[in-house]
Design a protein around this nucleic acid. Sequence first.
DNA 1: AGGGGATGAGTCC
DNA 2: TGGACTCCCTCCCC
Length: 556
Amino acid sequence: MAPVTRRDSFPKVLIERDSDSEQSSSEEEEDDEMLQDEEDDAVTTANRKAEKLDVASDSTRKGKAPITICLKKVCKVCKKPGHEAGFKGATYIDCPMKPCFLCKMPGHTTLTCPHRVSTEHGVVPAPRRKTCKPLEYVFERQLRPSLPSIKPKYVIPDQVNCAVIRYHSRRITSLEFHPTKNNILLSGDKKGQLGVWDFGKVYEKVVYGNIHSCILNNMRFNPTNDCMVYSASSDGTIGCTDLETGISSSPMNLNPGGWQGPNNWKMIYGMDINCEKGLVLLADSFGFLYMIDLRSNSRTGDAILIHKKGTKVVGIHCNPIQPDIFLTCGNDHFARIWDLRQMETGSSLHDLKHNRVVNSAYFSPLSGTKILTTSQDNRLRVWDSIFGNMDSPSREIVHSHDFNRHLTPFKAEWDPKDPSESLAVVGRYISENYNGAALHPIDFIDTSTGQLVAEVMDPNITTISPVNKLHPRDDILATGSSRSIFIWKPKEKSELVEEKDERKIVVCGRGEKKRGKKNGSISDESDDEEFMSKSKKSKSKQTEYKLSRCPTKAKR
DNA sequence: AGGGGATGAGTCC
DNA sequence: TGGACTCCCTCCCC
């Protein structure tokens, strides 16, 4: 400890001793008494060190407000001593004073949460629940070879290959597969850029940087012309881009007068296309619904308040079977079912109440009779039939996708290929210790039982993967995690393609290649692009060639 | 290598 | 109703 003579010339030091926020001046005897009473040796040493540092760094300051030193190791969550929260290695230790971070119930932490290991424990039994046991489920899968094999029981890492590309400069906010071309994936980022990647030809990618000025929230292909893609953005516009020519137009701009403060700036999150009616449905961040006529590409009808005034509508989904029915969800904690034929404020057919913000709500992809929602209360909710009782969900599945404001919101999505309409994919927020690495897997959940069917992760992917999309026809999963896009394929398939294709698609098996030194994070020579490929040759050539062909796009 | 910043929603008054 | 304050597993850049 610093000598008294020196310390006298420094600012007064206040010692914060205990949780009752008692403070005193820094007589050393008193300090030491307190320390010996209450602290173990390690803590004492640490604090002495800290004190020395503090004093030393303060030597340049004159005038001096008192310095407060905390002599207790306190929990960073509840600020109380006696325990600590945070990562111990790759395992996160929860603050015991707070409710479980996963299921939100008091009395235990996520480490001991019954929902942590086996998600079916989190299911609220549904009165109308169909009896589908795991075995039947597997059997059904085996009977239908066309079903995705990307869901073996609880394994994935050794059974899929993973390709990664990085051409976005901000985090990925949306992904969309091309409706007819199997290898084309569209990606949108926080900056508003739209990427088009042919993942069958590794370096075939285009990035459009001039369509939107901020977050690209959603993309939909024009069902009558799959060259045209509509995009919804927080800049308040809908973009309509021709992927052949790169030319884009803006059929809707909700902020024609430019920036007039945050209270007036409208953002578009939810958007979907109603093919039969020839309409683009979209909604703004103040609760209003708008429509665009697909043929004239111009606005039609008046804006209708569909969610609580002033709250964000985050999702719209048209029913795949009944063209008049669509589903919205928003920040007012509701998902609502609407009939296009009777659209007026308050005329929703059903209001599905949630405890917190509803990130997404989707009809099941084939029959359109089920509903799957993702809410920030860490629960997926399933309604088994929109013709049944909609007062409460058929099941609630506890799953960690709690909102963190710096992440793209998690959205559980149906597998469009699953004839039983039960499989859903969703990224997981909370990490798991996988051989010493804290990883955030992507979960495949059987929504009929709540069971975790599979989890996908890769030791190289240390970031959270909130954006996930299953291919409409192939056994392929696309993931947006931070600025990177991943394509997962069942291993045999990837290797098959690789043999046939000399350009070498994809493929880095799990752990085959270390990526950079920084903790497995992406760090390589080119900041705007990386591909985990076995052959790195001619990368820049091909990239530049492709880029130079289209003047409208911006690199990055 | 570690601090700061971008930034949304809940809560309290 | 709105402003101030808080927030628990981010992630990237400087």
